[in-house]
Design a protein around this nucleic acid. Structure first.
Lengths: 194, 194
DNA sequence: CTGTTTATATATCGATCGGTAAAAAACCAG
DNA sequence: CTGGTTTTTTACCGATCGATATATAAACAG
């Protein structure tokens, strides 16, 4: 009971996502957010907590939607197929014309004030978690005989994620999708084959 | 004539550099700057202009000091030597314990408010200029027969810079120097014709 | 209808943001 | 010394920051 909410929580979250993606955590003000989300400041606080909690909810939605391909990629049958799907998936996400260029997880709070330090740490944690998931998948590939016994899953996972993060910077600098695809092609030349 | 300045302009610039490096352009406030530089607000404005001009002067100093190895690298005799010196130089700079981890040019303003957009564009311009300089060097290497005729200097330069930028994100996430060195080793496996 | 609950709208909070005006202080030329 | 120049010091500007108190509006239960 009570007065029904007049806006869609997830749709407003998507509007916040777009803003944070383009301007980063600190570059986005509450006035920016309420304008884009079409709600008032008290509604935002009542629904999402505060700016920091809103950003975390935005991150979760980002993972659930724009980054869902990463979990699908880990289910590919071979290590190479996993990495191919990951790299081209990142290239697509970072140059999707429907969103800001680049990656929210990379450019959201790479350097920030002390006040935003918890958000920076949150993003670091998510980057490390993603890298660890890929590392585990590559260890499994090694057991499968899908990667040579000399392969170093930790280093390979870091190699792939480093490239994805570099592509995010490239996309944020204006690189188009074709350029990123070419980069992915080049990266895959170094992928160990058995 | 007139009252002599009581602080060292370049030393204060170094203090500002450290702050901008760690907190980014928008994450660093004027109070942060004056505290760290040991000067008052009017002194800062009289000497450096304003926050934006100060940041540009900091960028110039960053290039002249921490990034000087990039120009030396371009003078190496072979394309491979150029890239080796570039990549390990970036790895060193991004994990120098004397400074904040990462790269000022990458994390200074990757995503920001509209107000800081000129600074974001400035950084994009410098990234593109650096990539273009490497591209020209690789074109020369092709003429020297130092790279195979099939090599694509534009893509190779972008490949190297993408990796350097990815390493900056890795360093900002806590990766240590040894990890970055391993990444460089892996990258160089894909370099055409050793 | 009345009472309760929840969401909205309005107005505002203290703190901090980047940026300056004005006066005092330290130098040099004469 | 005095006059001119530059820097420093002190105090402050309007705007915006993230966050709220208060009051009104819209739903349901009885």
């Amino acid at each position: 009971m009570g007065r029904p909410r007049e806006f869609d929580v997830d749709h407003a979250l998507d509007c916040a996502l777009e803003l944070f993606w383009r301007k980063g955590y600190e570059g986005t003000s509450l006035s920016d957010l309420t304008d884009a989300m079409g709600i008032t400041r008290p509604s935002l606080y009542a629904t999402y907590g505060n700016k920091e909690e809103l950003f975390r909810k935005v991150l979760d939605r980002y993972d659930d939607t724009c980054m869902s391909f990463t979990r699908e990629a880990l289910e590919e049958p071979t290590a190479r197929a996993v990495v191919v799907k990951l790299l081209y998936g990142y290239a697509d996400a970072q140059t999707d014309p429907q969103h800001a260029p680049g990656c929210l997880g990379t450019s959201g709070a790479l350097a920030c004030s002390d006040e935003a330090e918890p958000i920076r740490q949150e993003l670091i944690g998510r980057r490390i978690a993603g890298e660890a998931a890929l590392c585990r998948r590559l260890e499994q590939a090694k057991l499968d005989g899908d990667l040579p016994p000399t392969a170093d899953p930790t280093n390979l996972a870091r190699y792939v994620m480093t490239f994805a993060q570099g592509m995010a910077v490239q996309a944020a600098s204006g690189a188009d999708r074709e350029a990123l695809y070419q980069l992915c092609d080049t990266v895959l030349l170094a992928w160990p084959s058995h």
